[in-house]
Amino acid sequence: MSNGWIPTTERLPDQREFIEAYVRHAYAAEFLVTIEGADKATTLYYSQTGVWFNEQGEPYKVVAWMPLPEVFRG
């Protein structure tokens, strides 16, 4: 791991990570990701079939991912 990033070539979210992300976001399992060729991180959803997708259902090639951090509460 590098700065918390997990390369997709090493592994994808496991069952526990998927369920925690799904329960936390209530719509789908959402993660912070780096998309192939992108300069900035973004959030995408992950399906248990191994597909990363946006809110419109469009698939993306993700090169690294990490769980979303907790929301800041000041």
Rank of each mutant, 00 (worst) to 15 (best):
I35H: 02
I19P: 00
K40Y: 13
W52L: 02
W52N: 02
Y45T: 03
L68R: 15
E36K: 12
E36I: 01
E58N: 08
G50T: 05
V63H: 02
A41G: 10
T42P: 02
Q56Y: 10
Q15H: 10
A29N: 03
A38P: 01
L68M: 15
K40E: 15
H25T: 10
L32P: 00
A64K: 15
L44K: 06
H25W: 06
P59N: 05
P59R: 01
P59Y: 00
K61S: 07
I35V: 15
A64W: 06
L44H: 07
L32W: 08
A26E: 11
F72R: 14
P7W: 05
G4N: 10
F53G: 00
S47P: 03
G50H: 03
A29W: 04
L44N: 04
I35F: 02
V62S: 00
N3L: 13
N3K: 14
G4I: 08
R73I: 10
N54T: 03
T9D: 04
Q48K: 11
T34P: 00
V63E: 08
Y60D: 02
E55Q: 12
T8K: 02
E30D: 07
Q15G: 01
Y22G: 01
V63P: 01
V63G: 03
G74K: 13
L32V: 14
I19G: 00
G37T: 05
M66E: 11
F72D: 14
T42I: 10
K40F: 12
N54H: 05
G57W: 06
A41S: 15
Y60A: 04
E36C: 07
Q56L: 11
E58D: 09
N3D: 15
V33D: 06
V33W: 05
R73A: 09
G37H: 08
D39S: 11
T34M: 14
S47Q: 10
A28F: 05
G50W: 04
T42C: 13
G50L: 04
R16Q: 14
S2K: 13
A41P: 12
Q56E: 13
S47E: 13
T49E: 14
E17V: 05
P69S: 14
V51G: 00
F31Q: 09
K40R: 15
D14N: 15
G4E: 09
W5R: 11
G4M: 09
K40N: 13
V51R: 08
K40G: 01
T42N: 06
R24P: 00
I35W: 01
N3Y: 11
T42E: 11
L68T: 14
A41N: 13
E36Q: 12
P7I: 01
A21T: 04
E10S: 12
E10C: 04
Q48N: 09
G57F: 05
G4V: 08
D14G: 13
P13F: 04
K61F: 00
H25P: 00
D39K: 11
